[in-house]
Design a protein around this nucleic acid. Structure first.
Length: 339
DNA sequence: GCCACCGGTGGC
DNA sequence: GCCACCGGTGGC
């Protein structure tokens, strides 16, 4: 059997896509395409169909995409209209939010908003075609076990799709979306918790932030945060929650220049010759990013033992790379049982 | 005052 | 160079 190391990605809407290949479409056409991709040729019962319909991607214009858009906003261009928005409320993925702002569950905020995660897609380990995953929960399950339970086209039968490797890919690289390679084997969040990925705008110092929203609505943004601000404060809720269930790893954008490179610190000679040099060209002017071929990209180097009994991906359990132990040491916490 | 977002930085 | 972590801050 042919075997590859599949990648799992989060596909996002974006203002200046470099990777995706779909031709420019109307939103209606895009919606139909994504819906049919998810539903496939499945013959489903009424109840099944209802569930599928609740899980389709909602493709819509950003509410601030036209009139409300700041003229100088990086999101103000035609491609922004192609953004694929994931409808959190229809998929039971609304954020656990602070009660203060009743509107914060909307899919996006409306001024200078960063891109949203548009869809989840996983590569079949056999044919390497990309398959859309209907919702975040299913995606997280697949991601958790991706190395010991490789994703196959047939896996989509779990949500009543009858497709095989002979069927065309759900999605290809096109010019309308930003792609990012996700980290494998990230544990599903503990029951009642949500793992939130917040993307940053292009040109920032990093690509995204991960937050964990606790059952009480507290948002934690690091392991020390989880330990100090939640588990220590809610020992009754900490029962059975291992810190290995938390991972703050973020996906890697395929668009090379999405994240601003950190300037290298070089001691500049204070000579007249140096002072007369023209300014260094910004990185963003150095040329368009290459279109990376997802289908034939090199496998990532994370393959190996998956998750040990601590819930920590084994590839992290190397000296100096164990954020759990580091965080626990920093927080002087040793009494949490890991699952 | 809270919080989402962003940049900086130290450790590796 | 990457990443985990955290401080700053502007908008609400």
């Amino acid at each position: 059997m042919q075997s590859h190391s599949p990648k799992i990605t989060i596909k996002m809407g974006g203002k200046r896509p470099e990777i995706a290949l779909l031709s420019i479409q109307s939103n209606h056409e895009t919606l139909e395409k994504d819906q049919s991709a998810l539903q496939g040729p499945s013959i489903s019962s009424h109840s099944d169909r209802k569930e599928t319909d609740q899980n389709v991607l909602d493709v819509s214009l950003s509410e601030h995409s036209t009139e409300d858009e700041d003229v100088d906003s990086p999101l103000c261009d035609d491609s922004h209209k192609q953004i694929v928005l994931y409808d959190y409320s229809r998929n039971g993925l609304e954020m656990v939010k602070a009660s203060k702002n009743p509107n914060s569950h909307k899919p996006h905020s409306f001024s200078r908003a960063p891109p949203e995660v548009g869809a989840f897609t996983v590569q079949c380990a056999n044919c390497l075609k990309w398959r859309l995953i209907p919702d975040q929960e299913k995606y997280e399950v697949i991601r958790e076990h991706i190395t010991d339970q490789p994703f196959l086209c047939e896996t989509t039968r779990q949500w009543n799709r009858l497709i095989s490797c002979d069927d065309p890919a759900d999605i290809e690289q096109d010019g309308t979306r930003i792609w990012a390679i996700d980290k494998p084997n990230i544990a599903q969040p503990p029951r009642g918790w949500k793992r939130l990925l917040r993307l940053r705008r292009e040109g920032g110092s990093r690509f995204a932030d991960v937050y964990y929203a606790s059952p009480t609505g507290t948002k934690l943004r690091s392991l020390p945060d989880v330990i100090n601000r939640y588990l220590n404060s809610h020992p009754e809720h900490a029962q059975g929650i291992g810190v290995g269930r938390f991972s703050f790893q973020i996906p890697t954008p395929l668009q090379e220049n999405y994240v601003k490179k950190r300037p290298t610190q070089m001691a500049a000679p204070a000579t007249p010759e140096y002072l007369e040099r023209p300014p260094v060209e910004p990185i963003s002017l150095s040329g368009p990013a290459e279109k990376l071929d997802l289908q034939f990209a090199e496998p990532l180097s994370w393959a190996g033992p998956v998750v040990n009994k601590t819930g920590m991906p084994a590839y992290l359990k190397t000296a100096g790379l164990d954020p759990v132990n580091q965080a626990a040491k920093k927080a002087k916490i040793h009494d949490f049982s890991c699952l």
